[in-house]
Amino acid sequence: MNKTVQLEDLGTKDFKETWDYQEQLFKAILDTKIKNRRENAGLETNNHFLFVEHPHVYTLGKSGDLANLLLSEDQLTAKGATFYKINRGGDITYHGPGQIVGYPILDLDNFFTDIHKYLRFLEEVIILTLAEYGLETERSPGETGVWLDVGTPFARKICAMGVRASRWVTMHGFALNVNADLGYFDNIIPCGIRGKGVTSLNTELDRESVDESEVKTKILKHFEDLFEAQIYQRSKKISKLK
């Protein structure tokens, strides 16, 4: 099993361009698996991890309700935002500046074949990362993602998640609010969940901003530990940072 993961930080990149790129990587892994099955080729499948920040965009999962988008097409344009209905699970969410988006494109045959476990591991990566900033975050029963103050009137989500999987190959992933403009969430019913708020790391820490590169390093450290993976970038392994 190949537990190495190729990291790419795409910087700021259009959502549709990134989605197309994800699909290319996803298809290449599937093609290798099909070749292995048909020809007993014994080829190794690759794993990828993309970091990206998107310009303002709203995305709706395949089972989502369009009524959870509270803007017309003209209003979207006025706010400089775009909208896409996409092929992940979950309902509607927002991506934009100040948010760390992570797209693991993995062959889970290299790790474990359990989508429920995969989602719980992604949540745990974020929970452990935020604990390093002194935040006690948790899961909310029946609601994928990472939350604060679950079970209280002040429950609020800090990280949304939605994935697609086929033949144990994953795509899409998580969106962690670090220095996000939370006003953009007012234009949707986030994840289709009414009566619960959204927050960002800088808001919780009462800081103007948080170092996003530092947060990414912590995410990668916990991802490596939980998935027992080795992350590489440009043919160089990223050493585990304390």
Score class of each variant (00 low, 15 high):
6 Q>P: 09
6 Q>K: 15
8 E>G: 10
9 D>H: 05
9 D>I: 01
15 F>P: 04
17 E>L: 11
27 K>L: 07
30 L>M: 13
35 K>D: 15
35 K>Y: 13
36 N>R: 05
36 N>V: 06
36 N>T: 01
38 R>L: 14
43 L>Y: 10
43 L>S: 13
43 L>W: 08
45 T>A: 15
45 T>Y: 09
49 F>C: 06
53 E>L: 05
53 E>G: 11
57 V>D: 03
59 T>L: 02
59 T>W: 04
59 T>M: 02
60 L>N: 00
61 G>Y: 04
65 D>P: 05
68 N>P: 05
69 L>A: 00
69 L>E: 02
71 L>D: 07
75 Q>N: 00
77 T>C: 06
84 Y>E: 08
84 Y>K: 10
91 D>E: 11
100 I>C: 05
100 I>S: 07
103 Y>C: 02
105 I>C: 01
107 D>V: 09
108 L>T: 04
112 F>S: 14
113 T>I: 11
115 I>Y: 07
119 L>C: 11
121 F>G: 09
123 E>C: 00
125 V>L: 08
126 I>L: 10
127 I>L: 10
132 E>M: 11
132 E>A: 14
132 E>N: 12
133 Y>D: 01
134 G>V: 02
138 E>M: 13
139 R>V: 09
140 S>I: 05
153 P>W: 04
155 A>L: 10
158 I>P: 04
158 I>W: 03
160 A>I: 01
160 A>F: 08
160 A>E: 04
166 S>A: 07
167 R>V: 12
168 W>R: 12
169 V>S: 03
172 H>W: 06
178 V>W: 01
180 A>C: 14
186 D>W: 04
190 P>D: 02
191 C>N: 08
194 R>G: 12
200 S>W: 03
202 N>M: 06
205 L>T: 08
210 V>W: 02
211 D>Q: 03
214 E>M: 08
215 V>Y: 00
218 K>G: 03
220 L>A: 09
221 K>E: 13
222 H>G: 05
225 D>T: 15
226 L>F: 10
229 A>Q: 03
229 A>Y: 01
230 Q>T: 14
233 Q>G: 12
234 R>S: 14
234 R>H: 14
241 L>E: 15
241 L>R: 15
241 L>K: 15
